[in-house]
Simulated scan of single mutants.
Amino acid sequence: MPTQGSAMIDADDHGSASAIVAGTATGHHVLHVEGYSRTKEELPNGRFVKSRPFSVGGRSWCIHYYPNGASPRCAEYVSLFLAPDEDVAAPFKARAKFSLLDRAGKPLLFLTRRTRLCEYAFPGSGYGFDEFVKREFLEKSKHLSGDCFRIRCDIDIVEELRTEDRAAAPPFISIPPSDIHKHFGDLLSSNDGTDVTFQVAGQTFKAHRYILAVRSQVFKAQLLGMMRESRADEDYCIRIDDMQARVFSHLLHFVYTDFLPEMDRQEEALMAQHLLEAADRYDMQRLKLICEDNLSRHLEVSTVATTLVLAEQHNCEGLKQACIAFFKSRYTLEAVMATDGFEHLSKSCPALRSFPCSTKQKPDTSPVFCYRLSTAGSSPHFCGWANISD
């Protein structure tokens, strides 16, 4: 037990982390005023010209430039304002900073102005400075060169609060996932220590009887119980003539690893039919359910009837219900009835000549009714819906 005042670290506590982020989007734009004298002549006090639109923080902006000031009280100044150049769906907050640049393109600290954090709620709602720089100072300074000068506008946009995942601190000890299935798979492949041999369709498979016995009660009875043949342990061989070698190979792979080998879609559907029979034969319920699931996901008009027969023969209630649900309408049924599998269904499982179907196609009847098949004539055919609620 941990001593008083100490903390016990749970080995299974891998930890996690997240963050609440109050983020800010930033960017800047440099406005070149070329031909300052002409702008001063053509734009009287209160008149402005907009810069080209530019993007910062996913929003479109523009700068309003007033060479003779934005109002009569600031007629001796150059005025600058930052404004959205698009519709504003919802109010947001931003801060602007205007700086006059020297010839080297560096901001002049004494001519740098920063707005407070302002709310922008509609297009044209601009914030800036009426008295950014006095024209007399600008015109006498070396920063107006060749009748041109530059203004830099920096923008900070306050983003909505958001949450993000963060990487948790790594644990002191990293425990890898279990790979016992790989070791058992290697044991099967190596044939080390095998004590039973299977002859299946002309191929030989070696295995370990105690592993088989632990995984299957049928194998246990066959290899360790009363069903075991009276033969020497080192020469124990079992013949299986009614199973394909590849099916038995996949069965052994599952016994040792609890996984099926990788297969393409077409092989998976076909192999699932054979493995379902093998799983039922050796009482391996997990493998049987895996095969049921695979088959239910591969149902087609051409295969649903034979799959329903398989489900009925091996008592697979879930797969049986999936097949019945596949018959969505009379038109689907008629397409299935045209297949060879449907004739096999009527001959192999007479009990399935009447099976429950969805009520969605018959909203005006009782919730329980059947699709009945008639075997009169040369082949089974649709004979109608029958109410069986009474």
Rank of each mutant, 00 (worst) to 15 (best):
N68Y: 10
D87P: 09
F326H: 01
L138T: 07
A22H: 06
L308F: 04
T197E: 09
F149N: 06
S178E: 11
A351G: 14
P171V: 09
D154C: 03
N191Y: 05
A90F: 12
L100Y: 03
P67I: 06
F132W: 14
C74F: 02
A7W: 02
H29K: 11
S55D: 07
G23K: 05
L352T: 06
E136H: 14
S379W: 03
L270A: 14
Q321N: 13
H14V: 15
T365C: 09
D242R: 04
L276E: 10
P356T: 03
K50W: 11
A278Y: 00
C74K: 05
E41W: 06
A278H: 00
A22T: 04
H183R: 09
E160P: 11
W385C: 12
E119L: 06
C118D: 04
R116N: 12
H250G: 01
M284W: 03
K93V: 02
L43D: 08
D130V: 02
A96W: 03
E164Q: 08
I173Q: 14
D242H: 04
R59F: 12
E343S: 06
T3C: 13
T24I: 11
R239W: 00
A70P: 01
T332P: 10
R286T: 10
C62M: 08
V214M: 13
T339S: 05
D130H: 08
D12F: 15
E119K: 10
Q285E: 12
I211D: 01
R152E: 13
F382T: 13
R330N: 13
T197N: 04
K40H: 02
D195W: 05
L287G: 03
Q285K: 13
G225D: 05
R286S: 09
A386L: 13
L82S: 07
S346Y: 12
S216Y: 12
P107G: 03
F54P: 00
G341W: 02
G46C: 04
A169S: 15
V368K: 14
A11E: 15
D12P: 13
A70M: 02
D264H: 13
E268A: 10
L252M: 03
L161K: 08
F369T: 12
M226H: 06
L108H: 01
K206F: 13
N315F: 04
Q361S: 07
D264R: 13
T339L: 02
Q203G: 00
R166T: 15
S249G: 11
L161A: 07
R38E: 01
D85V: 00
F122C: 11
H253E: 04
S174V: 02
Y331R: 14
A325M: 10
T112L: 03
A245V: 11
A83N: 09
E312S: 12
P356H: 04
V255Q: 13
L345K: 04
A278T: 02
